[in-house]
């Protein structure tokens, strides 16, 4: 440490701006350290794609519309036996109408049901493993006897297990293989 300079300033006064700059430099260093984790986390957060006022949406090259969202008791356990859900469980059915320029090449989707509290339920409920349910993947389900698409239009049907008394309000569709960003479209019945 030298003594006062020609202007009579000591070490602290000569270096005051450098010392002040240390604080934002430290803050910048800490931010740079966590930035990559923060950015990775933000990229993984699902983003809702827009839908039209009538409840339909153009997404993943398809036109999508929710035509039914209601409890059902029509599931079968076998060709002749009805499926009875466990006590306290209500089965909900969502029917989505899909319009595709080429149904054979429609991308597969994942369908999630949203209840009134905002909780989400998927189509792989343990409570439905003994029921015969169609594939719910946004592709024409002709393999299990479903109708062939007419003019590029067909339906996909999804089933969910909810606690009795819980209401469903919407479904969310995401197309992982089509859309690398984590996006989904939310469909609800028009009021």
């Amino acid at each position: 440490m030298r003594g006062p300079d020609s202007l009579g300033r000591g070490w602290w006064r000569r270096n005051v701006w450098g010392l002040v700059a240390v604080v934002p430099a430290l803050a910048l260093m800490v931010y740079a350290g966590v930035y990559s984790d923060l950015e990775y986390w933000q990229r993984g957060r699902p983003v809702q794609a827009p839908s039209a006022a009538d409840g339909s949406a153009e997404f993943a090259g398809l036109r999508l519309r929710l035509v039914e969202l209601a409890p059902t008791t029509e599931l079968k356990r076998s060709a002749t036996a009805a499926f009875v859900p466990p006590e306290g469980v209500t089965v909900w059915r969502a029917v989505i109408e899909i319009e595709s320029p080429d149904p054979e090449k429609s991308p597969g989707c994942t369908i999630v049901l949203e209840d009134r509290a905002g909780n989400r339920h998927d189509t792989e409920a343990q409570e439905l493993t003994k029921a015969r349910v169609p594939l719910a993947n946004c592709r024409p389900d002709t393999d299990s006897g479903g109708p062939a698409p007419v003019s590029g239009r067909y339906r996909t049907v999804a089933h969910f297990a909810l606690a009795t008394g819980v209401d469903a309000v919407a479904v969310r569709l995401s197309f992982g293989s089509f859309d690398l960003a984590v996006r989904y479209v939310r469909l609800s019945l028009p009021r």
Partner: peptide, 8 residues
Amino acid sequence: GRNIQPGL
């Protein structure tokens, strides 16, 4: 092995 749904 068990997929647990909310509320169940």
